[in-house]
Design a protein around this nucleic acid. Structure first.
Length: 868
RNA sequence: GGGGAUUUAGCUCAGCUGGCUAGAGCGUACGAUUCACAUUCGUAAGGUCACAGGUUCAAGCCCUGUAAUCCCCACCA
């Protein structure tokens, strides 16, 4: 006997994974290849796979430099369950693993590392820094990949895609070039959100807005009082705006006021932006440092004066303020205004402030030249395809949420001022006399800082792409999509990822997929929510409630973790997670292990043959297993993972182990035991790959890997016999319940079961005795003595002394009343003519039957009471 | 300001197209021990389905409103 008495995941998991990997079972069997047309111009292999017997899914690439967190654990549990399920279903399943260079994230980590060693980024060139980070990441890489293996991810490792792989960069450059030629890329001096600490700009989506307390100061610009939260920017003011409808200021429009602390005069302009209701109704306009003011400036052609430098200090301001930080400058300005009597008031307000999502620093709107994508066309096409329903969302409401987002999408800033990323393949003209040449040219040779074309010298843009620009190509690059090549894996069957990056990633993949390939990049989207701690709170380092998935895997096993994290979880919802559910998963694994141990021991001693059903418990378990398969298949189609796991849990434990195996201790049916166990193992395999494989390998009669087994067909059984077994379950349940309810302890050993003329009980005498653990079970002539068990409607009595039965009388009376109440409710329903007339006929019929049953039951119970 | 979601047992969640006598796991209480498994087995208690109206023969589910919690988006000086 190979089976130990309990399942120890640690003894099996890594060996099993290694064996899977070595055997290549995770590789897809259908290749992608260049189209090879035959004489008809039709690719014959395309015909062969026209039914799309493939299943593809790509992993949202975890940070190559980091460790997996609980969210990755959930991602893998979800994705791998899908892939394994469809692999068992016979699809050529391809799960492409990935690793993310995580541009900004990794850069932040590395920059800290630099600082720790007393260096700064400014000591090195872009290329030097890139090389340094590359080495840094290379050292860490592999860690994350090992963790994916520990989670059981059945991915095709040979196809691992790193976001800086050559083919990725190539594809990104190709798209960029296409966009450049299509006129969708422009270089613009715009206000961007800029982090003074990290010295980089962000896309809108990366900005975190938080409500904060602030002060609204009122400052006199001559006789006009303006309101502002940022007095230090007044040096950049180039106008004062008032609402054109505002009677108070109408006459002043077109005149000028004196800008305090300076010797400048600035115009008073009319603009809708000024809200007469707010503050004094007059607002200072600083086009270089405020998003609204920037737009006002555009409308009125105002000068943009930059007064805050990228490092957050003042520039282009009077000597006194020059070089101060914004904060110092604000204090000084307020002090000086006060002295001059220009500070007219201050109010405490709450307003929304933009922060760096990484370090929390307040972002500075900064005037910068950046590359932008004109997203109008991209968004429009995406909306069309979305509204046509080409992508199915789970949860469904996210489709509309996404469309709404796309409808309001603004141009996308793709320039980042960090060295770690894909270099932007644009070069700026430096040869001044070459006036006819364009200022910027596209060129893929970003390994060079300087190039020459037709005698004109160009230098490389030092910026890198926003990570989301390259990762928006993820389905394309992971499936090796190429123009003109037949690719049965694109579009992906499903994109599974976090609901939090619906906009940042999913939206952009859809736009880019359509732009590059003309097709949506995936057929369905499944979004998972956040994994919260046991009390429903967000996990965070500062709260100290972070759960490390690897700790749980080490402690309870990979399968236990997967089963645990899928439990009680549904699409798009932030849901709590605790060790308890992992423990429940661990217990199921051990249960299955011991079930297999028992089955193997019976198989060892019994005789093999054809799969048949010979007694009612066997028909019954076949019915239950078929129902389970049906439910799991339906749940998988609908991405209802928790429900699938729940169904399997109950079928394996409450049905197979507690009833079928118990009955098989009496009548062993070796072929059926083998077949049913195989089915349960295969059905659970997508969710608990290791324990099912470990058992599969330990069982004497199974071959190959369960990972590539065939999803089971339905079992044959006799439905009438299957239903009859329910009577046994009711009888056993009632005996157990009654024994517990009777006064006194340890009743099971005390009372015999007696029955009258009853063939069902007679045929299953021994089974009932074993399941109820009564000392004896006997048939008697005439009416047996003792307490009649009424529920099952069989001539069945517990041989209980009269004295005890009398004590039980109250319980019996209460029971009659309860059934009576149920009967009343049913009768009331039937008395309602509308119910009889309008409810579906089968329901009315059902109600009638229930009434009959209840009436009969009450009659039996009353008889019983009379006996007492 | 706009939008989304949630509210069901002590806890975490199911309950899909209304048919419910509202389920599960964990927890709790009581009982069981050499039989595959104490990571076990059995039994039970525990719910005005947030609240108020409405539609319907029938509402946890549909409609209207209210409250609470969470999240996202947005330029309010």
């Amino acid at each position: 006997m190979k089976f130990a008495s309990s399942y120890e995941p640690g003894e099996y998991e890594s060996d099993i994974y290694a064996a899977w990997e070595a055997s290549g079972v995770f590789n897809p069997s259908v290749p992608t290849y260049p189209v090879d047309n035959n004489e008809d111009g039709i690719d014959d292999r395309e015909e062969e796979f026209s039914e799309r017997n493939t299943y593809s899914i790509v992993m949202p690439p975890p940070n190559a430099n980091g460790n997996l967190h609980i969210g990755h654990g959930l991602t893998v549990a979800l994705e791998d369950s899908l892939v394994r399920y469809y692999r068992l279903k016979g699809k050529s399943a391809w799960y492409v693993p990935g690793a993310d260079h995580a541009g900004f994230e990794t850069w932040v980590v590395y920059e800290k590392e630099l600082e720790k060693h007393g260096h700064t980024r400014f000591e090195y060139s872009r290329d030097e820094l890139y090389a340094k980070v590359w080495d840094f990441v290379a050292k860490q890489r592999g860690n994350m990949e090992l963790q994916l293996r520990a989670l059981g991810a059945s991915c095709a490792w040979d196809d691992l895609t790193f976001t800086l792989d050559e083919n990725v960069v190539d594809r990104v450059y190709t798209t960029f070039e296409k966009m450049w030629n299509d006129g969708m890329i422009y270089r613009g001096e715009k206000l961007v959100n800029f982090c003074p600490k990290h010295q980089t700009a962000f896309a809108d989506i990366e900005v975190e807005h938080k409500d904060e307390k602030g002060t609204l100061w009122e400052i006199a610009y001559d006789d006009i009082v303006v309101s502002t939260t940022r007095p230090e920017t007044l040096f950049g003011d180039t106008a004062v705006a008032v609402n054109p409808e505002d009677a108070r200021y109408k006459e002043r429009i077109g005149k000028t006021v004196h800008l305090p602390l300076t010797d400048r005069e600035i115009p008073i302009i009319a603009d809708e932006h000024a809200d007469p209701e707010y503050g004094t109704g007059a607002v200072k306009i600083t086009p270089a440092h405020d998003f609204d003011d920037f737009e006002v400036g555009e409308r009125h052609n105002l000068e943009r004066i930059q007064v805050i430098a990228e490092n957050g200090t003042m520039i282009n301001v009077p000597e006194k303020y020059n070089g101060l930080t914004t904060e110092e400058c604000r204090k000084q300005v307020l002090k000086d205004l006060k002295e001059q009597g220009l500070l007219k008031g201050e109010k405490k307000i709450v307003h929304s402030v933009a922060h760096c999502y990484k370090c929390g620093t307040v972002l500075e709107p900064m005037l910068k030249e950046q590359w932008f994508i004109d997203v109008q066309k991209l968004a429009k096409v995406a909306i069309e395809h979305l509204e046509a329903g080409e992508i199915k969302f789970h949860p469904a409401n996210k489709q509309k949420v996404l469309v709404d987002y796309l409808k309001n999408l603004k141009d996308w800033n793709i320039s980042r001022q960090i060295p770690w990323g894909i270099a932007i393949p644009m070069f700026r003209k430096v040869t001044p006399e070459a006036t006819d040449e364009p200022d910027w040219i596209f060129d893929r040779r970003t390994n060079l800082t300087e190039i020459e074309k037709a005698g004109v010298k160009y230098i490389r843009d030092e910026d890198t792409f926003d990570t989301w620009f390259s990762s928006s190509h993820w389905p394309i690059v992971c499936t090796d999509w190429e123009e003109g090549n037949y690719n049965p894996y694109y579009p992906l069957n499903v994109m599974e990822t976090g609901a939090d990056i619906l906009f940042a990633w999913v939206a952009r993949m859809i736009m880019m997929g359509l732009y590059v390939t003309g097709e949506v990049p995936f057929k369905e989207v499944y979004l998972h929510g956040l994994v919260l701690d046991a009390h429903g709170k967000k996990m965070s380092k500062s709260k100290g409630n972070v759960i490390n998935p690897m700790d749980l895997v080490a402690k309870f096993g990979s399968d236990a973790f997967r089963l645990g994290i899928l439990r009680g979880r549904s699409a798009g919802m932030n849901q709590a997670f605790s060790e308890n559910s992992v423990i429940a998963g661990r217990n199921l694994c051990n249960k299955l292990w011991n079930i297999s141990r028992l089955v193997q021991s019976i198989v060892d001693e019994g005789e093999d043959g054809d799969v048949t059903t010979d007694n009612m418990g066997e028909d019954w378990i076949c019915r239950e297993i078929n129902g389970c398969l049906e439910a799991v298949e339906q749940d998988m189609r609908n991405y209802r993972f928790a429900e699938a796991v729940e169904t399997l849990y109950q079928t394996i434990w409450d049905k197979y182990a507690d009833w079928f195996l118990e009955s098989q201790k009496l009548y062993q049916n070796v072929p059926l035991l083998k077949r049913t166990l195989e089915i349960l193992l295969i059905a659970l395999h997508p969710f608990a790959p290791f324990v099912t494989e470990a058992i599969w390998q330990n069982l004497a009669w199974t071959d190959g890997f369960i990972a590539t087994a065939k999803w089971p067909a339905r079992l044959e059984f006799d439905p009438i016999t299957a239903e009859e077994f329910e009577n046994i379950r009711i009888i056993v349940g009632e005996v157990r319940g009654t024994l517990q309810a009777l006064p006194g302890t340890n009743n099971a050993k005390k009372y015999a079961l007696l029955y009258g003329n009853d063939s069902l009980i007679q045929e299953n005498e021994l089974l009932i005795k074993n399941l109820t653990r009564v000392p004896t079970i006997n048939s008697v002539e005439g009416t047996p003595r003792g307490l009649r068990l009424a529920l099952a409607n069989h001539e069945l009595y517990l041989d209980v002394p009269e004295k005890i039965v009398t004590e039980y009388k109250d319980a019996l009376t209460e029971r009659i009343l309860a059934v009576g109440r149920e009967l009343d409710a049913l009768n009331a329903r039937m008395m309602n003519p509308n119910y009889v007339a309008k409810a579906p006929e089968h329901l009315v019929q059902e109600t009638k039957e229930q009434i009959d049953e209840k009436q009969a039951l009450i009659k039996r119970l009353k008889q019983e009471l009379e006996f007492i």
